[in-house]
């Protein structure tokens, strides 16, 4: 490897778990809570976060939740149940489909899709994809799969894009409502599960998966999360599973929806950018040209700017004298 290091160079997963567990104990204590609530999707991030919490607090002080909905199906809930059994922690399943129906999530989503595909039927599967990585403009398109298996892709108009995103963001926000309901009931803290890529690049819903009391893995690259999960001995079905966004009815990777690169490459690009690595020294590691790496660095910066609002706390005005 030509780059002088990398996210996994010298990474000690066991030592990291010890540190994160210790900090989790301190954080829960500091917040005056008695344990932790973790919503688990069966994905690697929430599984690793749950494993760290169990290591830190003990299984009897961690409440796991499974919050499936219609578009994602049962497989992720099954994986999350397998996780709970391996950790020895209690896990409750509370499907959120009925709540989302009541809020109009699916109806508003379907309205947005029909703005692009007027003949769309709710039975069709769909997903949102982005244009290829560049230092310039990113365009989002909607992909639908008709019942005969044929797929079609069309550009999303701005209004339809925003309507679709607003509708699907309800999923993360309803899940968070469930998490805080359990946290209130048990006097527990809510655990957020973004990794470093997601946190740094604003890949979360404000008031949804972005809302939490403690975010134990927000400093870990995705590859480090996998290493931590393996070190924790999490089920192989989870550790070997490809990451998805768990948002749309067609399988969708974070690469095609947001980052434009595989997580391995995005890890290396983020690491290079954070450590001021000359793009020329990263060429062999990421398999991109110098120009493409420069574009990726620029896009990392641009996403930070574009998503600053998601990180911003409420603006407080001065108290009246």
């Amino acid at each position: 490897m030509s780059a002088p290091g990398g996210p996994l160079h010298g990474f000690d997963a066991a030592a990291t778990i010890d540190r994160l567990a210790s900090e989790t104990v301190e954080a829960v204590r500091g917040l005056g809570r008695r344990g932790a609530v973790v919503a688990t999707s069966g994905g690697i991030d929430s599984s690793a976060a749950a494993g760290i919490c169990v290591r830190a607090l003990g299984a009897d002080k961690v409440q796991l939740l499974r919050l499936p909905e219609r578009d994602v199906g049962d497989s992720s809930s099954d994986l999350a149940l397998e996780l709970a059994e391996s950790l020895g922690a209690d896990s409750v399943e509370e499907p959120i489909t009925a709540a989302l129906e009541g809020l109009g999530c699916y109806a508003q989503r379907d309205e947005a899709i029909r703005a692009v595909f007027p003949d769309y039927e709710p039975s069709w599967k769909h997903k949102l994809v982005r244009s290829a990585p560049s230092a310039s403009i990113t365009v989002f398109s909607l992909v639908v799969e008709r019942p005969d298996g044929s797929r079609e892709q069309r550009r999303m108009p701005a209004d339809a894009y925003l309507t679709l995103l607003a509708a699907t963001n309800m999923k993360q926000r309803v899940r968070k409502l469930r998490e805080y309901t359990w946290a209130d009931r048990l006097s527990y803290a809510v655990i957020g599960t973004p990794n470093l890529l997601e946190y740094d690049q604003g890949f979360f819903v404000k008031g949804g998966d972005g809302l939490a009391d403690i975010k134990p893995i927000a400093g870990l690259y995705k590859g480090q999360v996998y290493a931590v999960a393996r070190e924790l001995g999490l089920p192989d079905t989870i550790v070997s599973r490809a990451p998805t966004t768990e948002t749309f009815s067609l399988p969708q990777t974070q690469e095609e929806f947001y980052f434009g690169h595989s997580y391995e490459r995005m890890d290396a690009l983020m690491w290079g950018h954070l450590h001021d690595v000359d793009p020329a020294d990263l060429v062999a590691e990421v398999g991109l040209s110098v120009e493409e790496i420069e574009a990726a660095y620029a896009e990392i910066e641009r996403r930070r700017t574009a998503t600053a609002y998601l990180h911003a706390p409420a603006v407080l005005f001065a108290r009246e004298a």
Binding site: I137, T138, V139, R155, M156, A158, Y161
Partner: peptide, 8 residues
């Protein structure tokens, strides 16, 4: 203008 703005 951001990417969505360019679509507008």
């Amino acid at each position: 203008v951001d990417s969505l703005g360019f679509v507008e």
